Simulated scan of single mutants.
Amino acid sequence: MTRLLSFIDRLSRLAETVAVLLIFGYCALMLTEVVARAQAQSFSFTWEFSQYAMAAIFALASGPAIRTGVHVRITLVAEMLPPGLRRVLDILANLVALVIVALIVWAMWTKTATSYERNILATSVTKSPLWVPQAVVLWGMAQLWLDLAARLIRRLANQPYEWRDADAEPSDV
């Protein structure tokens, strides 16, 4: 089990790294557009590819956000509960999240496969094959499911299940 969890953690770090690289790419695209507009021009591909990048960033960063505990959550009710009940509520919420994300993965798989089989292209000037950005989003959603599964396994085994402040500077903690 430890090997599986370690493998999921490595995949999560890879997804996180790709998301960071895509953020830099997104910034480069937007800066290119700003410079072009300053010259009274525009590049249509910057808007198209930046949209793909934003979807991929969101998807790829979702799993690592669960892993490191930096996602948005509402703890108002959970903080008022005793630790045992809080654990049960957390496990139930994790199970519900696994079901929801599994449905999203299935839908993205269907969408990506359909785009690939039918060779669906973007309606923009670039005519990009849509299965490529859809596959990256599918990867991100699958990674989210894996990170949720790893979190649940660790929670059930009473192991540390979140790495809060894992990347924080010593002065931040």
Rank of each mutant, 00 (worst) to 15 (best):
V125F: 10
S128A: 13
R164K: 07
D165I: 08
K127C: 10
W145M: 05
R154D: 02
I153M: 07
L152I: 07
P133I: 09
R151F: 05
R164W: 03
E162A: 07
W145N: 02
L121N: 06
Y161C: 08
W163I: 02
V136L: 10
I153C: 03
S128R: 11
V136Q: 00
L144I: 08
A122V: 06
G140Y: 00
A150L: 05
V136Y: 00
R164G: 10
P129L: 10
L152M: 07
T123P: 07
G140L: 04
I153A: 02
R154F: 02
V132N: 10
P129D: 14
W139Q: 05
S128Y: 12
R154S: 01
G140F: 03
Q159A: 13
L121W: 05
E162T: 09
W139N: 00
P160S: 11
I153W: 04
L148N: 01
L156P: 15
D147V: 01
L146W: 01
A149T: 10
R151E: 06
S128Q: 12
A135S: 15
Q143R: 09
S124E: 12
D165A: 08
L152F: 05
S124L: 09
N158H: 15
Q143I: 03
Q134T: 07
R155Q: 12
M141Y: 12
Q134Y: 15
A142R: 02
A135K: 02
A150G: 01
L146F: 06
Q143M: 11
D147N: 13
R164Q: 11
L146T: 01
P160N: 13
A157F: 14
L138P: 00
S124V: 09
W131F: 15
P160C: 10
L156F: 13
W145I: 03
T123S: 11
A135H: 06
R155H: 09
P160A: 11
S124D: 14
P129Q: 10
W145F: 10
V137F: 04
W163A: 02
W145T: 02
L152Q: 06
W163C: 05
E162H: 06
A150Q: 03
V132Y: 15
L146P: 00
R155Y: 04
L144C: 11
R154M: 04
V125P: 07
E162L: 09
I153R: 00
S124F: 12
Y161H: 10
D147I: 02
N158C: 08
L130E: 03
K127P: 05
S124P: 12
K127G: 10
L156G: 14
A122Q: 06
D165C: 05
R151D: 00
E162Y: 06
P129C: 11
W163H: 02
V132K: 14
V137M: 06
A135E: 06
L130V: 08
A157N: 13
W163P: 00
A149R: 03
R164H: 11
V125G: 03
S128D: 13
W139C: 07
L146C: 08
A157G: 13
V132Q: 14
Q134L: 15
A157Q: 15
W131D: 06
D147S: 05
W131T: 09
W139T: 06
A149L: 13
V132L: 14
Q159L: 15
W163E: 08
P160E: 13
R155M: 13
Q134H: 13
L152C: 06
